[in-house]
Design a binder for these strands. Structure first.
Lengths: 224, 224
DNA sequence: CGTGGTGTCCCCCGATCGTGGGACAAATGA
DNA sequence: TCATTTGTCCCACGATCGGGGGACACCACG
């Protein structure tokens, strides 16, 4: 499909960018990647905005093939799924390197187009394998996330608004609070929640009450 | 207090009973205990009722000092906390040997007077140490339970009825269903739940909604 | 070109919740 | 002994839930 985007492995090298806010961990990750044949680390940064700025400054040909992205949510700094979506659209593959602290965030980034997830607790061999797999166009999932992907079957696909509504509602918000937070009318928020229920019911997991939603949202990784 | 109950270590031996439904695990536990100096295994059984029957048949002097009790909840066979309470009242110390499958049950048995908990995943040395400690009148807790005991501070003490009401209500039952299950009037069940809220509020953890209760009940080990 | 999913909004209505009172007897504990 | 806790029951009222119905526009997939 993306036959237009040229530099997939220019001069036999994959171009990799690393975004990770912890210096030590970043150094570690970078050194592991550098040691890999055919891999060139073209950017190291603390945050996604840094990377975006760097991309804007450089030529299109300098764009990386892969972004190894940490998902630490310390200091209020979070990763914006929309930014990830943009990068993916630009042909950059995304590998999440995470502590799995926030399952919902991992989900969002995955939905934004990331094609791999490794845990920092995984072995170096696993990290390398993940990098190779994602660069090759494949998907890579840590064992820790396997259980959730395995259950993906009986978990219905929710739309963006439905998921946001579920998260808020299942956290204890009233319908009115959900509506306000989403910037829609009460009836609309109600519809979202109703549709979540319908979808789960269609998947053979009827959720009637708010408590059911809370329990399920937790079990299915929508809440922490 | 129990200065009347004589045979605490008659002839230098502690009398121990083992109740565990899995034959292999029971054999293992019994052999570990037998290998201990000064310990005599006087009863092996599959269930608590078996032990009670055996106790009723024998003389008071044959009663054990310690009961090593498994908490497996397979095949619908559960452990009745009231029976445990009775044994404790008779001067028998209780050590729970569990897989920690059901935290609520562990809690109930602890409240019924058990003074020790070991996990089957603990080392043999730990099991032995736990046995000694409990026989000596002390308390023993697996590390796995330590986190919960540590948080015991900001978790208010709930009465039996309050805990039962919380468990049911937080699982999704309506007040009416809780009332029916407990065999009391709607208003009474309402009072129980209200008191749970009051206690948590007094402990600095206000719980206003049903979802709050569900979340907290899960976090505090009242639900699985 | 229709079908389905999505985003948005609207109405009704009975059930349930959350909060505020009050009462009283038994048990517990300081 | 007196205060607290517990178990039990009762009432009222506004907020919220849960289920049902309908509507319409957009967009994508086939």
């Amino acid at each position: 499909m993306d036959s237009g985007s040229a530099n997939e492995a220019g001069a036999g090298h994959w171009r990799v960018a690393v975004v990770e806010d912890h210096l030590l961990q970043r150094r570690g990750l970078v050194s592991v990647l550098r040691a890999q044949r055919g891999v060139r680390v073209v950017h190291e940064g603390e945050s996604l905005p840094d990377l975006v700025g760097w991309l804007a400054a450089g030529s299109a040909a300098s764009a990386p093939d892969l972004l190894a992205l940490d998902l630490h949510v310390d200091r209020g700094l979070s990763v914006d799924p929309d930014v990830v979506r943009g990068l993916v659209r630009d042909g950059i593959k995304v590998l999440v390197v995470s502590e799995m602290t926030s399952l919902p965030l991992v989900r969002q980034v995955l939905r934004a187009g990331a094609t791999g997830v490794v845990s920092k607790r995984d072995s170096i061999a696993d990290v390398v394998a993940a990098t190779r797999t994602v660069l090759g166009g494949g998907r890579w999932m840590t064992r820790e996330l396997g259980e959730f992907l395995a259950r993906e079957g009986d978990r219905p696909a929710l739309s963006d608004q439905e998921e946001r509504a579920l998260v808020l509602y299942a956290s204890g918000s009233t319908i009115d609070q959900v509506a306000t937070a989403l910037g829609v009318k009460r009836e609309t928020a109600k519809t979202y929640v109703d549709r979540v229920k319908s979808k789960y019911a269609a998947a053979g997991r009827p959720l009637r009450t708010k408590v059911d939603l809370a329990r399920t949202a937790l079990a299915d990784g929508y809440l922490d």
